[in-house]
Design a binder for these strands. Structure first.
Lengths: 344, 344
DNA sequence: CTGTTAGCGCTTTCAG
DNA sequence: CTGAAAGCGCTAACAG
């Protein structure tokens, strides 16, 4: 008879352990472990006995014990600022899906809901093998670096940093293309709405806007600072209506901004794109529902999330971190808010 | 001098453990544990020594070891079907935020990306103290029940089941109110679009639609079956345009359906709400951007997520499960797609 | 093919 | 206020 687990004299169903299962099946814990991990070969009869015991006791293994023994958590951490809008949700879905394929759990941390994010991230590091942080999650760079010394880290759409692997969607060239498209409709007073200093993503979009002007020997205006929110969009639209700005085209840092601006302008009687062309970035669902349809850029967000999970896994596996940021291509989605004619 | 940890003769920074920290600080591991948990009182000098050692070694505790020792994971599991659309994202945000307040990590499982969700859920049970499952996550009821025998479970917006705690948003009364509102605009051929059998949520909305008719001595039509997707909405709109259905009002099971139907109809020249009134459910962002604005119902999704996390925590704390489902109130959002005049 | 036996790294009495 | 020691439940050699 197998040795009785010293700490659980009676095998209460509520706290079935590998010991109670072994007892119940009349085998050793090693055997139980074997059939549950399916690694080594076990006699079919034995195997059945164990499975039956597991079933009868409703045994649920304690993950922590396994993690301790195998010396890794089999889990990836993901740090995102929040989840409003389709962007982060899509990213998360991509991440989760790939993590699932790799048999990794995902533990999620949303920094906007935290008062002490440093603590949250430290705590996270405690229970995962590797961590992906979204660039604008605004985690202190030194925290990231500290972490990096302990666990693999990849930054998604963030500032490239020494020794920290990065993945991102392409911004500059598509922004250049988008801005060029608008300019080629004959618009000459295009404004960029958004804050280039809020992160590399927006910075690159603005740079693309600049480049498109430069390509055509045109002068580009200073960016109109705005955060990526409906509120800031509405506020800007109001100022535009009040005559504080003059423009025949607006290149907005993202769709939310573009959409709120467009609606506010339309409600005030302005014609889009007649009076003013408007383009955004992200291709959110609303973009194809508004009239005119919003011309924008679609990012491979899902793939970006998957890529992050992938890299995490490889890094955990011992692969050396890549020194260059991996860029995923984006795609221009032309509808009619840019001045193109409807295709009916 | 503190005892040397048998298994780690040298304290490599990469694998700092509580032993290396203790060594480095010249104290026992018990003391290190104490200052890190902040429970018992430790002499300030000792405390500092330990903190310094932690800092110098870049010590990151192993969560699994703690979990094993304290006998719980300090983590909540959340099972959702997916994350597209604002509904689940919002739910998740509410859940995460409250879990964070309760110092619980959240590990997420998305069932739509899984081939073997039973395995996924089992695996999840392995690393969390309690699990919240979204009703339509389509987890076999017996799986839920099995789980429930081992770990606290709460079902969000799902079928009420014996002994399993449930939380949900109110549907029936607000559906009745919404349908009544439409009928009171004089519409007499209102159709319900959605599948009442797809879950209690939709079922209750349909029941509310029925009740509103009954209240007025009107006959209600059979529901038009459709899944909650843009594709199904478009398809239905097409059939409507082809004359397969006749209606002067549409009560859609959710906003995505309503929106796609509305747009398709409008693109074909139909006037909304002139020819046909349309209302949805959820109040997604797009609902306030389309013209006419979509009349819909706003659910307290964030709160629902928070509530689930709350209940999980209490259940883990030993509180007995509530026998009745907790309902959160919803709110009718009247815009103009229902036939109301714009308020300008 | 199966059982024994060390740990995995941390918490927590129990002494002192 | 601090240290010693006994586990927490599981995996993985190592024998047999």
């Amino acid at each position: 008879m197998a040795k009785q687990h010293p700490a659980s004299p009676e095998a209460r169903s509520a706290g079935a352990t590998i010991y109670s299962v072994a007892d119940h099946a009349g085998v050793s814990i090693a055997t139980v472990s074997r059939v549950l991990q399916g690694a080594t070969v076990v006699a079919e009869a034995t195997r059945q006995k164990v499975l039956t015991a597991v079933e009868e006791l409703g045994y649920v293994p304690t993950g922590a014990a396994r993690s301790l023994a195998v010396r890794h958590h089999e889990a990836h951490g993901l740090v995102l600022p929040e989840l409003s809008g389709p962007y982060y949700a899509e990213l998360l879905m991509g991440f989760e899906a790939r993590a699932a394929e790799l048999a990794q759990s995902v533990v999620l941390v949303l920094t906007n809901s935290r008062t002490d994010m440093a603590a949250a991230v430290r705590q996270l590091a405690t229970r995962v093998d590797a961590i992906a942080v979204f660039g604008s999650a605004a985690i202190p760079a030194d925290l990231v670096r500290l972490l990096r010394a302990k666990k693999p880290v990849v930054v998604i759409a963030g500032e490239p940093q020494d020794g920290i692997e990065a993945v991102a969607a392409e911004n500059l060239e598509s922004a250049r293309e988008l801005a060029g498209h608008v300019l080629d409709h004959g618009r000459r007073r295009a404004l960029f709405v958004g804050d280039p200093d809020s992160g590399p993503d927006i910075r690159n979009r603005y740079d693309g806007y600049l480049a498109a002007h430069r390509d055509r020997g045109l002068d580009a205006a200073e960016p109109v600072l705005a955060r990526l929110s409906e509120a800031d969009g509405t506020a800007f639209a109001q100022r535009l209506l009040a005559g504080e700005h003059e423009a025949d085209a607006l290149m907005c840092a993202n769709d939310e901004l573009a959409l709120s601006i467009m609606t506010t302008l339309q409600d005030a009687g302005r014609d889009v794109p007649g009076d003013i062309a408007i383009v955004g970035w992200d291709d959110v669902m609303t973009a194809r529902y508004v009239r005119p349809g919003l011309t924008t850029v679609r990012q491979p967000v899902h793939e970006l999330g998957a890529l992050a999970a992938d890299r995490l896994h490889e890094l955990v596996g011992g692969e050396p971190p890549r020194t260059y940021a991996q860029m995923l291509p984006t795609r221009l989605v032309v509808r009619t808010s840019c001045g193109c004619l409807p295709v009916t």
